[in-house]
Design a protein around this nucleic acid. Structure first.
Lengths: 254, 254
DNA sequence: ATAGTCGTTCGGCTAGTGCGAACGACTCGG
DNA sequence: CCGAGTCGTTCGCACTAGCCGAACGACTAT
């Protein structure tokens, strides 16, 4: 599919990353199990584990290996680099409480949406998405809000890379529809998700920009039963865009 | 100092980990700067970067490299593995609100305390510690609460590895004092930090155990001006131990 | 006891990693 | 407008070090 530049890569590092990925999927495992999973000899894996343990990325609990808590530190560092993270958190907590629903913040990376923060009001629905998860942009209110603020060429590149897979009957699956929708979003200033990703789940989102660059988007999500009529079409959009504005303004002083 | 077993390790992986560590400290950097920092040739670093970018652990923004948001996902996975994480969050939020102070949860790893969750009441003090950070156990209420529930041999091993460095006049710096203090904590059921780490900062902590294994500890922190008399000696300890109990009970059904 | 695990160590072969030079693209100043 | 200085990238070569496979000791279970 997407054939990359293919510079020379380092095989040994690839092996270690494969091990880490495997350990992310299995909670904990022994040498033999890991060696089997990444298709290397036990001796080789043993050396990799020694390196990872030395650097405290992996912990050895009496014979079985698991990922360490080191990643928390990395994650906090990375989050802290989003200049608006603290401002978003505060404002989003208020927003979630005010409307009692689920509020989220996401950013774009590698052409996908990455959920960064999630906060729940009293009646919030439970969704599969959680912090760190990645999702296609075209089927999320968050994603479309961000796409609407990007160059067309960028949107095209992303569609090339990840496609426009269909999740429900309402999912946008053609570029024509997508560009039309993005135009409408630009005019309105906010984006809807009318059960385009998950049947029964509706969202409203507004982008957050700083000097013409998309920093991310925030959204409110709820069940279709509650999200309809003037509440869904007017009130919630107002709340979300208001919060987005507050974030944009506060972000300038931090 | 602590000379490890020294199994055979993988140099190439070590290089990549050095690069990641460097990128954690500098926000973003180019090939030449990185090569300089990790003391490798530009060509070598180039190969490593290609590998890390391929695996999406690093992002290349027009010429400069930075850590990706991938680590959020890893961090959430790792947090999710602490069976009690969700229970702790909920209970700690309540606790922080009830007493208006700073409440924290930490675990032990590699003989150090790792802060996992932090939540602030209305009058909470600001501290340097934040999620993912590691700190010495012997000078924290959180740390001592955990040490008090470990075998003596384990405590000795930890003291061997990390020592008992002094931070303030009140810091415990000898094993004799430490073991005495741990005994007192075992009797009381909770631990104090009487400005042992930071001048003017006091804390109370209680350990969280599940079938005789320490899962971590929770604490309340505040300024010495407020943390004194019966509030500090009785009321806050009661609140903390009550919360710890609630967590232990709820954790059994999750 | 024995046969099956497991993790660990080690010698040896060769693939792959690291180096450094060279290249093209770019940015400054003069 | 062009040279001197960056930068990132590519590539051939030398040699290291990564990978394998076999062997070992410690366990467990039957």
């Amino acid at each position: 599919m997407a054939s990359e530049h293919q510079s020379r890569t380092v095989d040994a590092v690839q092996t270690s990353l494969d091990i880490i990925e495997f350990l992310q999927s299995v909670e904990s495992a022994g040498i033999t199990e890991i060696a089997d999973a990444v298709d290397r000899s036990k001796g080789t894996v043993h050396g990799h584990m020694a390196t990872l343990v030395d650097n405290e990325y992996v912990v050895n609990d009496d014979g079985t290996y698991r990922l360490s808590l080191q990643y928390l530190d990395l994650a906090e560092t990375v989050k802290g680099r989003l200049q608006i993270y603290d401002v978003v958190r505060k404002e989003l907590d208020d927003l979630a409480e005010e409307c009692g629903e689920l509020a989220q913040f996401a950013t774009e990376e590698h052409g996908k949406a990455v959920y960064i923060y999630k906060t729940e009001g009293e009646d919030a629905v439970q969704t599969a998405s959680s912090v760190g998860n990645r999702a296609h942009l075209h089927c999320l209110s968050l994603g479309k809000a961000m796409l609407a603020r990007m160059d067309e060429s960028r949107v095209d590149a992303i569609a090339d890379e990840h496609g426009l897979p269909e999740f429900t009957d309402a999912t946008i699956t053609t570029r024509g529809e997508l560009f039309e929708e993005l135009e409408a979003i630009r005019e309105r200033g906010y984006a809807f998700d009318r059960e385009e990703r998950i049947e029964g789940l509706r969202c409203v989102a507004a982008p957050i920009t700083m000097n013409d660059e998309v920093m991310g988007a925030i959204s409110i999500s709820g069940p279709a039963s509650r999200f309809s009529g003037p509440l869904y079409e007017d009130e919630l959009p107002n709340l979300v865009t208001r919060s987005a504005n507050v974030i944009e303004i506060n972000a300038q002083f931090s």
